[in-house]
Design a protein around this nucleic acid. Sequence first.
DNA 1: TTCGTCATGTAATGGGTTACATGATTAC
DNA 2: GTAATCATGTAACCCATTACATGACGAA
Lengths: 191, 191
Amino acid sequence: MARRDVLDLAVLGLLHDAPLHGYELRKRLAGVLGPFRALSYGTLYPCLRQLLERGWVSEQHPVAPVRRGRIVYQLSAAGKEHFEALVADGGPTTWDDESFGVRLAFFARTQSSVRLRILEGRRSRLEERLEALGAALARSRERADAYTLELQRHGLESVQREVRWLGELINAEQASRTTDPLPRQTDHTPT
Amino acid sequence: MARRDVLDLAVLGLLHDAPLHGYELRKRLAGVLGPFRALSYGTLYPCLRQLLERGWVSEQHPVAPVRRGRIVYQLSAAGKEHFEALVADGGPTTWDDESFGVRLAFFARTQSSVRLRILEGRRSRLEERLEALGAALARSRERADAYTLELQRHGLESVQREVRWLGELINAEQASRTTDPLPRQTDHTPT
DNA sequence: TTCGTCATGTAATGGGTTACATGATTAC
DNA sequence: GTAATCATGTAACCCATTACATGACGAA
């Protein structure tokens, strides 16, 4: 998922629940993207305009007496379709750093097979990272000072914990799959 | 520290140890900035040129028989000075996400008082974040689905661990300060 | 001689932040 | 009435990535 698609997914996903205006949308976005790195209006409004141009959302301007006020955005049928398409994507870019969190935030509306694929992709991505970090740490062991070493050690540990966490999520996912087997899901599970 | 200064610090710091050419520099930079997000040549070379223009480094071009080859960069006296200035900075921007890691990587050449200031600044930054995350989690508890909740829970836990880690570093720092008291350090410790 | 890696560099592009500008609404 | 917050929007800027182009050097 390209950077752009991730934002689209987040916005369309939020509008999926209820129509919202930009200002409110931004606040909710913080809940999806994380309370920090909430995006600026300089990003959000141009993004909304583009969604409008593509016909994925419709605007509702304030009524007569008001000159300026809340502009409420609502998901269109085409927008709903596009959201479904985005949420069905289980490609390699879905487990990138920038995508994964947002994808997870919309897991409730993602097919179980896709969820599993994303979780496993994310885990093996982090496992690669673990190897790289381990190698870097080994190389540093003798050359680097205590601070650098400590930084690398802590980084390594964080990734290890995240791998374990993903393992738990994957187990839970698989358990629920055997419990309530999904209909119409021809199985071409990866990895 | 502005984004730009962080890069300068990283590059000057590496050249402080030994003269290097761009290609090698980039690899070492990966050790400082983290093995991922190693920066591209499209960033590095323009950066080096600017360091050159500012007189902080000097280049050494390959000798006669070769038309093109390694260009070795070496820290100048002015560059060394600038590095010292950067490393002496203990301002609020030093514990930003983008700065902190690099600052820590050069802690061995940072005054103890500045180290402590940065560590404590970083910790309180993360403690604020903890509060925000806790509040978000509390708000979500009833509205959000299990996946979102789990994501937030894990995020919260990661930050908690990092706060604890910083606490240990701070303790170690304070212990070493009482052990070997530094000369010429008028004490206006913050927080 | 050809492949892979080392090595330097530029131009186009993308995308986000900052700063700014404006106006509506609410609370005091 | 006035301050704070809600709300929308634009333009300038920053800066990193991507894609591309070039060329040296060593090994197979």
